[in-house]
C-alpha cells in the first residue's frame, strides 16, 4: 500500500484544509481500509505539523503597527496651508484660503479619528509659525497645486466611502487655486 506515489499525494493533500475533512476513500478490501484510515490519520498529523507554523505566521502578521492613515498626511498638509495663508495677509484671498483649508483639515482629521479613535495624548504638535516666503502669492499657489495633486493621487487608493470626501477636498483646493489664478 505504501508507495512513493502515496507519499507525494499526502504532501499535496496537506496543503488544502478542506481535503483533510473528506472521508477516507472507499476501498474494495476491508483489511486495506484499515491501512488507509491509518494513513489518513498520519496525514492529519502531518497536516497539523505543517499548519502549526502557518497558524503562528497568521497570528503574528497583524502585530506590526498599521500603516499611517493616508488622510492623516492630507490633514497635516491642510493645517500647514491654513497656517501659511494666515501668515500671508498681503494676499487678498489669503483669509478665504486659510478658512477653507482649516475646514479641510478638520473634516479630514474627523475621518481619521473616526476610523482610529486617538489616544488622548496624540494631539498634533504645536505648529511653529512658518517663515514668510519672499513671494507670498507664489508660495500659496505652489501649496495649493501640491494639495490638489496629493489629494487627487490619494483618491484612487481609498475605499469608496472616503473617496467622496477626499475628492471634494481636491476639488476645493482646485477652486481655491482658481481664486488665485
Amino acid at each position: 500500500m505504501k508507495t512513493p506515489a502515496d507519499g507525494i499525494s499526502a504532501t499535496v493533500d496537506d496543503q488544502t484544509i478542506s481535503f483533510a475533512r473528506l472521508p477516507p476513500r472507499r476501498t474494495a478490501a476491508g483489511n486495506m481500509g484499515r491501512v488507509i484510515s491509518e494513513s489518513v490519520s498520519r496525514r492529519r498529523v502531518l497536516f497539523a505539523v505543517a499548519a502549526a507554523p502557518l497558524a503562528v505566521a497568521c497570528t503574528a502578521e497583524p502585530s506590526p503597527p498599521p500603516p499611517p492613515d493616508p488622510l492623516s498626511a492630507l490633514a497635516a498638509q491642510a493645517r500647514a496651508d491654513a497656517r501659511l495663508a494666515q501668515a500671508l495677509t498681503t494676499v487678498p484671498a489669503a483669509a478665504e484660503i486659510a478658512k477653507a483649508r482649516a475646514t479641510h483639515a478638520s473634516l479630514l482629521q474627523a475621518e481619521v479619528d473616526r476610523e482610529r479613535p486617538p489616544q488622548s495624548s496624540t494631539v498634533p504638535p504645536a505648529p511653529t509659525a512658518p517663515p514668510t516666503p519672499p513671494d507670498p502669492l507664489a508660495a500659496l499657489r505652489t501649496a495649493l497645486d501640491e494639495a490638489v495633486r496629493e489629494a487627487s493621487a490619494t483618491v484612487t487608493s481609498l475605499p469608496a466611502y472616503r473617496a467622496g470626501l477626499v475628492g471634494s477636498v481636491a476639488a476645493g483646493c482646485a477652486s481655491l487655486r482658481e481664486v488665485l489664478a
Binding site: E96, A100, T103, H104, G167, A171, G172, S175, E178, V179
Partner: peptide, 25 residues
C-alpha cells in the same frame, strides 16, 4: 468634479460673489 468646481469658481468670480471659492464642492 474638479473641473466643474473650477468652472463654478470662475463664474462666481465673474459674478463678484464672495467668497468665490467653494470649500467642499
Amino acid at each position: 468634479l474638479t473641473t466643474a468646481a473650477v468652472r463654478a469658481t470662475r463664474w462666481r468670480k465673474a459674478a463678484g460673489s464672495a467668497p468665490a471659492s467653494i470649500t467642499m464642492p
